[in-house]
Amino acid sequence: MSDVLLQSLITGITIGSAYALVGLGFAIIFNVSDVVNFAQGEFVMVGAMSAVSLLAVGTPFVLALFLALIVVVCIGLILEKFAIEPAKSATVVSTIIITIGASIFLRGLALLIWGKDFHSLPAFSGETPIHLGSATITPQSLWVMGITAILVYLVHLFFNRTITGKALLACSANPIAASLIGIPVKRMMLFAYGLSALLGGAAGVLIAPIAFTSYDAGMMLGLKGFAAAILGGLGNPMGAVAGGVLLGVLESLGAGLISSGYKDAIAFVILLLVLFFKPQGFFGRAGEERV
């Protein structure tokens, strides 16, 4: 049983890392604009699909990944500029519907460009598994965990050490005050969408060699990312990371130790229980409400 446990943990942390990156994207956009961007999962899909296409036309591997990320960032910026910004008078719920519309739109676009087939990316450095006792870990899993850790650390530094990062946090705390002290709130919004698109795209290219990708692969990852962000507490980007890894581990432990048929149910029951006892997630800030 211990090897099942170890294997489930490895799997859980790998998949959880992808959830973490998507969740981090959710948290960043939420922090700046109070909007939950339901098109976040589509960033993952577009990243992976673009990389597949670029490789197919003969682009060198590293360059293809890099260009794919640029494509995703552009999509993020376009989304903010042409769908979120024009709707500034919209309520939060209306904005959510806009992002749902955007995710359907992107899926439709991907369907036309890439067709309905599943695609896969080659693993970054071979597929020979590394043995840890009776459990194994693939090199790609290590890439997923490693790059996720680096990205998370960079985002952490960005928020705590740079002026732009601090300005971004200020927007979330109080947008009016932020604009009064001269922070360009509009540009910050654009920046937030670009950044979370980048994180989503990175999750996409990292996970595609393991899980494949298709035009409709984004929705499920988006949902899990959202769950990760909520579990950790929306207001705290690092909480989303913890939430993502936790969710991944819960799922795979559920599958490995209890029941694979009910593993998603187990994960969501635990999520609900967490919310019932900690209504702001694990690391969320306590909300204050305006009267």
Binding site: D3, T14, I15, A135, I207, L253, G256, G261
Partner: peptide, 20 residues
């Protein structure tokens, strides 16, 4: 007798259980 969901991305947990 294990299963996986439509959009699942990794089945190693189920498979190591099967191996056991």
């Amino acid at each position: 007798d294990e299963s996986y969901g439509k959009k699942d991305t990794d089945m190693t947990a189920q498979l190591s259980k099967i191996r056991a």
